[in-house]
């Protein structure tokens, strides 16, 4: 078996509106390999969320195919297998928490999957442990902070023991503390269990921490590569209304002023080291 967790082939999606058919994307190809952490960038309305919903058969392609671990998302009998393989976390934590008690919410997915009772308890315990929310297991979710709620939502997905987690702007509604909590949690998941992560985000500092960055514009990919490869294309990103991480922006501006600096020192410390070298 190949190591592609997600594979879209000539993926096309259109839907009907009052003004006729609207095409979100056409002939999109992308493969996400096991263990990757992929950031998907693009401004609102570029088709990122629609793409994400194809990865666990919430939406089905109107043309082309999407495969999850080799399973065609269009096949009805594989629906539950697909959804348990690719977990989804959305932007608004309030609208994805089903139960009024933390542990009952985390148990929701395994209950739906018909997991035996003893194993549900085990999965809930370990999912809560992983996101560091064990002590809140009997709390009411609506009293938690945004970051905590989002970690509960991640735990709810982990309880399915997914191969891959797709997160659609999970930090958009959070404060800096919450954002840091969520980023730490998903990166740790990837590092420890090798869980494949697809992260849709507007925050370049988050994308800079991923292993791969793809940029979407008007329903197609305009850049795909390591953060270093993508973020050094400053004009391209600015042209589509995106930012680059401040480290790259700083290096870019300094280069324009004649400093002999590399563009790909993405991390703060790396960037500082590069600048220090030319300042001496």
């Amino acid at each position: 078996m190949d190591d592609a967790v997600l594979r879209a082939e000539k993926l096309t999606f259109e839907y009907d509106t009052d003004d006729g058919e609207l095409e979100v994307f056409r002939d999109l190809d992308i493969t996400v390999k096991r263990g990757e952490v992929v950031a998907v960038l693009g401004h609102n309305g570029c088709g990122k969320s629609t793409l994400a919903k194809h990865f666990n058969a919430i939406l089905l392609p109107t043309g082309g195919k999407v495969y999850v671990m080799g399973m065609d998302t269009a096949s009805d009998d594989l629906l539950l297998d697909i959804r348990r393989t690719v977990g989804m976390v959305f932007q608004n934590p309030d609208n994805q928490i089903v139960a009024a008690v933390v542990e009952e919410d985390v148990a929701f997915a395994p209950e739906n999957l018909g997991v035996p009772q003893a194993e549900i308890v085990e999965r809930v315990d370990s999912a809560l442990e992983t996101v560091g929310m064990t002590e809140y297991r009997n709390h009411a979710p609506h009293r938690l902070s945004g970051g905590q709620k989002q970690r509960i939502a991640i735990a709810g997905v982990l309880a399915m023991r997914p191969e891959c987690i797709v997160l659609d702007e999970p930090t958009a509604m959070l404060d800096p503390v919450g954002r840091a909590e969520v980023m730490k949690t998903i990166l740790e998941l990837n590092r420890r269990d090798g869980t494949t992560i697809v992260l849709i985000t507007h925050h370049m500092d988050e994308a800079a921490q991923c292993s791969r960055v793809v940029v979407m514009e008007d329903g197609s990919f305009i850049a795909d590569g390591t953060p270093e490869e993508v973020f050094t294309q400053v004009e391209l990103l600015r042209g589509v209304g995106l930012e680059v991480p401040q480290t790259v922006e700083l290096l870019y501006e300094l280069r324009k002023r004649g400093f002999n600096l590399p563009l790909d020192a993405l991390g703060c410390d790396e960037c500082a080291a590069a600048i220090a070298a030319v300042m001496r």
Binding site: L80, F90, L113, V157
Partner: peptide
């Protein structure tokens, strides 16, 4: 949104 989130968590 909740309906989609529930489906994503295999509710059927």
């Amino acid at each position: 949104e909740l309906a989609v989130a529930m489906e994503c968590r295999c509710y059927h």
